[in-house]
Computed example of a mutant assay.
Amino acid sequence: MRTVSSIKELRSLLKEARPKTVGFVPTMGYLHEGHLSLVDQAKEKADVVVMSIFVNPLQFGPNEDLAKYPRDIERDRYLAASRGVDILFFPSVEEMYPEGSKTIVTVKDITDSMCGASRPGHFDGVATVVTKLFNIVQPDYAFFGMKDAQQVAVITQMVRDLNMPIEIVPCPIVREPDGLALSSRNVYLSAEEREQALVLSRSLKRAEEMVAMGERDAAALRSAIKSIIQESPLAEIDYIEIRSYPELMPMEELRGHCIVALAVRFGRTRLIDNIMLVASQEETACSVR
C-alpha cells in the first residue's frame, strides 16, 4: 500500500494505474469494520482501491467535536493495508483548502431536514469536500455507508446534477452483535452510555415490526420509537424522522421507499441510526431494504 499526502503525488499514481478502474472510499479515519466493509465492496468492483482519511473542518459546526474527533493514523494505516487498500490518501487541511479558497458546493432541499436542520452548514461542508476529492481521485466508483443515509442521498443528487461520471455505491450499515451501529464516535461513550445507546436499534426494530404488522401512520411510529428511546434516562432526542427516500419528503402515511432515521445524544456524543423500509399499501406487505 502506498501512503501519500499530496494531491500531485496521488494524481501521478492514479495516472500510472489507468486504464484500470478505480474504487474510492472517503473517510475521516479512526477506521472500524464499517469503513473496512466499504473496502471489501470496492475490491469486488474495482481494480485499484483508494481510501482517503481527512477530518474535514468544513462539516463541523463551531460547537462540535472537530478538535476532539478521534485520530490514529498509524492504526488506520495498518487496518487499511491489511484489508487491501492500494493507495491511502492522507492530506493536510492546508493541502485540501489552500489559502484563498472561496468555493462552497451546496445541494438544496434534501439538506434542509434531519442532520441538515440540526447541523446548519454541515452538508455544504460534505458536498464541498466530496466534490474536491472526486475531482482529485476521479474514481469510477465511490462507496458510502448507509448509516448516514442522508449523506448518501445528498452525494447521489450532487453527482447526478453535476454530471460526474461516478457510480455511487451505497453499502449496508454494519452493527455490533448487540445491534449498535458502528461509528468512530462510539469511542466517546462511557460504559453506561454504550449500554443505553442500544435503545436506538431496539426502537428501529420495533418500528419495523409495526410496519410489518400493517401500521402505516407515521405519527404512531414516531410515538412508539420515542417511548422506547425515553426508557434510557441518558438519551436526549435530536430528531425522529420518517421520510421518503431518497427524496427525503415528510410522510404522514408510509408508502413506497422510506427511511426511519434517528439522532440521539448520550452525554456529549451524538449518534445517528436508521432503517430503510419498503411499505406497500397492502395490509401486511413490508420489507427491509
Rank of each mutant, 00 (worst) to 15 (best):
V4R: 06
R75G: 09
D40A: 15
E176K: 14
K68Y: 08
L10R: 01
E44D: 04
L221K: 02
S244C: 09
E247C: 11
Q150N: 10
F144L: 13
N163I: 02
A42T: 00
A224D: 02
C171A: 09
E241S: 15
A285C: 12
G267Q: 09
R202I: 07
I242C: 04
E247T: 13
P120K: 06
A279F: 06
I240T: 02
L200S: 05
S12I: 05
I166P: 03
S101Y: 10
Q281K: 14
S244N: 08
G84Q: 11
G84K: 11
L234N: 03
L248D: 00
S12C: 08
M249L: 13
V260W: 01
V22I: 15
N56C: 12
I240R: 01
L88E: 05
A235P: 00
R194P: 08
A261G: 04
A279W: 02
E282I: 13
V93N: 10
S37F: 07
A263T: 00
A219I: 09
V288F: 10
D72V: 09
A261T: 01
A117P: 03
D47N: 14
K68L: 15
E9W: 00
M164T: 00
K226E: 13
P57A: 08
V187M: 06
E16R: 15
S6C: 10
R243M: 15
Y69M: 12
E176Y: 08
T103S: 12
V105N: 08
E247I: 02
E209H: 09
E252R: 14
Q196K: 11
T156Y: 01
Q151M: 15
N163G: 01
M51R: 05
R265L: 13
A263W: 04
E192D: 12
